[in-house]
């Protein structure tokens, strides 16, 4: 039983980070940016390049990979979304376009690295740590800690920094933000760059846990979207949504079978959306 609890914490960590990342982007540019899934995958593949192929020491490889992924993410924003934000194009079209960009990213990675599963680690496989009746590998522990740290960072930034104030204002009322002289452009740039770093790092942690294939980004992102939709606006709500979703999935996997994980997650989403009261549902207040 405690194993289910631990498994829940682990996957919740991933969901929460992605959910928060997506919601930050959403506040900035007002649409669900699916190309983030490509950045999630780009991180570990950059690691493959820097750490495995070029044999750069671990610490620097990490930094280069996250920076590179983050730059790629910003370039996507600059080349494509920037031209069309906040005016003519509906969030729907941007959402669909971001799908297209994800497809391009994923297939470019496939061409460069091949479709075969790749491993970054070259350490011995060891038994996990026993923690109160449940097994936990070191990397999974890192994942949990990472998500906690990330949540704190987001909380601090959002409420204690000027940038955070700008982001919140843009998120709630864009015209007001503009008229108050908030530097929208700068805020968006910062958002994209930082989210890129954190999400690619998350991808690297994930890859250390379960190895990587080019197509793994979409699954995780969808979990993040579910968490964001169910969670709604507040950071706390997203965390709770992440834990609930993760719990439901892991309980279901234990009792029904792990091949139904996705179905459980999407059934929850479907149920939630079908149960909405008669009003326009918005992810941001």
């Amino acid at each position: 039983m405690s194993q289910i609890f631990v498994n829940t914490l682990i996957s919740a960590s991933f969901f929460i980070v992605i959910g928060l990342a997506l919601s930050l982007i959403y506040r900035a540019v007002k649409f669900f940016d699916m190309s983030l899934a490509g950045i999630f995958v780009a991180g570990p593949y950059c690691m493959l390049f820097f750490y495995n192929s070029l044999c750069i020491p671990l610490f620097f490889a990490l930094i280069f990979s996250c920076l590179l992924s983050s730059i790629i993410y910003y370039v996507i924003y600059f080349a494509i979304y920037k031209r069309f934000e906040h005016n003519a194009h509906s969030p729907l079209s941007l959402l669909l376009a971001s799908f297209g960009i994800y497809i391009i990213l994923q297939n470019v990675i496939s061409i460069i690295f091949g479709d075969r599963i790749m491993t970054i680690r070259n350490i011995h496989i060891q038994e996990g740590i026993l923690l109160g009746g449940a097994m936990l590998t070191p990397i999974q522990l890192i994942a949990i800690l990472y998500s906690i740290i990330f949540v704190f960072i987001v909380l601090i930034i959002m409420h204690k920094t000027k940038y955070g104030l700008c982001l919140r204002t843009i998120g709630e009322n864009f015209p007001l933000a503009q008229s108050l002289g908030v530097s929208v452009k700068k805020t968006i740039v910062i958002t994209y760059l930082t989210v890129g770093i954190f999400v690619s790092l998350l991808g690297i942690i994930y890859a250390y846990d379960v190895d990587i294939v080019p197509t793994m980004g979409m699954n995780i992102i969808m979990m993040g979207i579910i968490v964001m939709i169910i969670g709604g606006n507040g950071i706390m709500k997203i965390i709770i949504a992440g834990i609930i979703l993760s719990l439901a999935i892991n309980l279901g996997a234990w009792y029904i079978g792990s091949e139904w994980k996705e179905v459980i997650a999407f059934a929850i989403l479907l149920f939630y959306l079908l149960m909405q009261p008669r009003a326009s549902h918005k992810a941001v207040n």
């Binding site: 491993t119 496989i125 060891q126 996990g128 097994m135 590998t137």
Partner: peptide, 27 residues
């Protein structure tokens, strides 16, 4: 190996590929 499942493993021909050893290494 990571979760401490220690038993004897018996598999079939479909697993016969160097990729298996690449992924599982000493496990």
């Amino acid at each position: 190996k990571e979760i401490g499942l220690n038993t004897i493993f018996v598999g079939a021909d479909g697993s016969y590929s160097p990729d298996l050893i690449k992924i599982a290494s000493d496990a």
